[in-house]
């Protein structure tokens, strides 16, 4: 009688996938915690952190402003017609501000930063991995996590909340442009509703999300690049491209999933 091949059975595959998932999760967590802890080691990496702040933060300002403006304008337009249907167009300022500050600001900013900075980081670190630059750091007694990852974590933790705030501000202004300038709504009423409806908890919640998303994006993107060589076919240009794709997809999915979790916890 033939013995069934247990290694290829469905439960075995499921088990392997689960073990891989747990290992990856553990690996990512340790990767982030080490990177975070190394921020506080002496001497401080001021120059490298500033470089990353410029790359993740300053260079993302145009795209964040553009996205924020477009989102605010669309919200203003859609919100106005929806509210006008029930005779409540005066609440447009509240709708735009709360939607942006609580949800869309942090989420869209994080997604835009994943696309602009996260993908670049995954690719850059991936290339450094396959061209042995990371091995070279180790041979020179330079901790690659400290040198490459810690400045990025520090810069992301600062940049994400600031860019989210910028996105929110520009978005609210976008809502004002469509609501007041195009659709002739009273501008005083728009900003009065914004001020009256937004509370400190909303702003804090938005910032908490921005910080969580910063951790997710930076950890996933850097980890994927850093471990390019460990994956199947993780060599050459294709290995880097696979890592970059995986980094962007995983980051976006986790941003959306964690957004739901944080929102339900903050209620």
């Amino acid at each position: 009688m033939d013995t069934p091949n247990l290694n290829s059975s469905f439960p075995a595959s499921l088990g392997r996938a689960f073990i891989f998932f747990v290992q990856e999760l553990g690996g990512i967590t340790v990767f982030f915690l080490k990177g975070l802890a190394l921020i506080f080691t002496w001497p401080p990496q001021v120059r490298r952190t500033l470089d990353q702040l410029y790359f993740i933060g300053a260079q993302s300002i145009p795209i964040v402003m553009l996205t924020g403006l477009a989102t605010g304008m669309v919200l203003g337009l859609q919100g106005y017609y929806a509210l006008a249907g029930v005779g409540s167009e005066g609440a447009l300022g509240s709708i735009v501000a709360l939607t942006l500050i609580r949800e869309m600001g942090p989420v869209l900013t994080a997604i835009m930063l994943t696309a602009r900075a996260g993908s670049a980081m995954a690719a850059e670190i991936g290339v450094m991995r396959i061209s042995e630059q990371i091995d070279a750091l180790q041979t020179m007694q330079i901790n690659p996590l400290r040198y490459l990852i810690s400045p990025r974590i520090a810069a992301a933790l600062v940049s994400f909340p600031l860019l989210t705030a910028l996105f929110d501000m520009v978005g609210i202004f976008g809502g004002f442009l469509t609501g007041s300038m195009l659709l002739k709504m009273n501008p005083y009423l728009y900003f009065h509703r914004v001020r009256a409806s937004v509370e400190m908890d909303d702003v804090t919640g938005g910032f908490i999300k921005a910080v969580v998303f910063a951790v997710i994006v930076i950890t996933i993107c850097c980890y994927q690049g850093y471990t390019t060589h460990r994956r199947q076919g993780g060599f050459g240009a294709r290995g880097v491209s696979n890592s970059t794709t995986r980094a962007v997809v995983m980051s976006c999915v986790l941003i959306l999933v964690s957004d739901y979790v944080i929102t339900s916890l903050l209620r």
């Binding site: 290339v127 450094m128 061209s131 042995e132 630059q133 091995d135 070279a136 041979t139 020179m140 007694q141």
Partner: peptide, 19 residues
């Protein structure tokens, strides 16, 4: 380990320079 590492250098096959 730190002392041992400080005594060794490595020249990589593909140079491994920081581009």
């Amino acid at each position: 380990k730190k002392a041992w590492r400080s005594k060794i250098s490595y020249v990589f096959q593909n140079a491994a320079l920081f581009d």
